[in-house]
């Protein structure tokens, strides 16, 4: 479903700030795979997701989604295939627009924007039904501006928007990192529900090792812009945090240096 082949990206080439963020990274996700992605700061986790989403062009390599080569497509064209949720709850929704307007925008993802009404007949009812299972009471606030919602509510709404038009691949970029533990757990639960319900192929970046182990059927560890560990199936189910730390040291040849990753 998703194929990254020898993808390279260097930021600020030729300057003192030169940084190789992706170094011949290759990764293949099968349909229905739910892979969690971990790694230290600067390992290339978010960069990999941005490369898939087409935020900027990659230097080398190719990216295919569902068999389609999207390497040269712009960000908004790739949106046809992708659902995305970001670390910052402000990024995924339009704060000046209402809940129903945001959902209607998401319902047209990848379609041409015409001069027909932005919200069609019957859509409001559908939106209500979709919002109910979240259990946040948003179904009664369709005409409230999204800017009035809390971070957790905005992330839940963004998740719904990302899955409203079934994407080929769902990209979750540390989408619970900016939330308090209780809200984060709730948003993760909703993520699991949505992924399960639509059988979505998913990449979820997290800095929390426990979450990385508990969710999904695959675990991918990045270091210095490439995949150093890829664990799946029964092997993943039996993983523990100490296991993961030991395997990181073995694979990368260094101690896990990232406090945030250790303490999480």
């Amino acid at each position: 479903m998703l194929e990254l082949h020898q993808v390279c990206k260097t930021f600020n080439p030729g300057t003192v700030n030169e940084k190789t963020a992706l170094n011949h990274l290759s990764l293949t996700l099968e349909e229905g795979d739910f892979a969690t992605v971990i790694g230290g700061n600067g390992a290339g986790k978010s960069t990999m997701l941005n490369a898939i989403a087409g935020v900027w062009p990659v230097d080398e390599g190719s990216i295919r989604i569902g068999g389609v080569d999207v390497t040269d497509l712009t960000e908004y064209r790739r949106a046809l295939y992708l659902g995305r949720v970001f670390q910052d709850p402000m990024v995924g929704t339009a704060g000046d627009m209402t809940i129903e307007e945001n959902l209607a925008l998401a319902a047209r993802r990848g379609e041409k924007r015409t001069l027909r009404w932005g919200i069609r007949k019957g859509e409001r009812g559908q939106f209500k039904e979709l919002l109910k299972p979240l259990g946040l009471g948003l179904e009664d606030r369709l005409t409230a501006k999204v800017g009035l919602l809390s971070g957790g509510q905005r992330q839940a709404l963004t998740l719904l928007m990302a899955s409203l038009k079934k994407p080929r691949v769902l990209l979750l970029d540390e989408h619970t990192a900016a939330l308090d533990p209780k809200t984060a757990a709730k948003v993760l639960e909703i993520s699991d529900q949505i992924v399960e319900e639509h059988k979505l192929t998913t990449l979820m970046v997290t800095h929390n090792m426990k979450d990385a182990i508990a969710h999904g059927n695959r675990l991918i560890m990045l270091d210095a812009g490439r995949v150093i560990l890829d664990i799946s199936g029964e092997e993943k189910k039996k993983l523990t945090v100490p296991d993961l730390l030991a395997r990181f040291t073995k694979a990368s040849g260094e101690e896990m240096e990232n406090d945030r990753l250790l303490l999480a």
Binding site: E75, A94, G95, D96, M97, L105, R109
Partner: peptide
Amino acid sequence: GSNPNMARAQGIN
């Protein structure tokens, strides 16, 4: 105008 990143993520040119 409200959020260009979100707009692009929703496939808006």
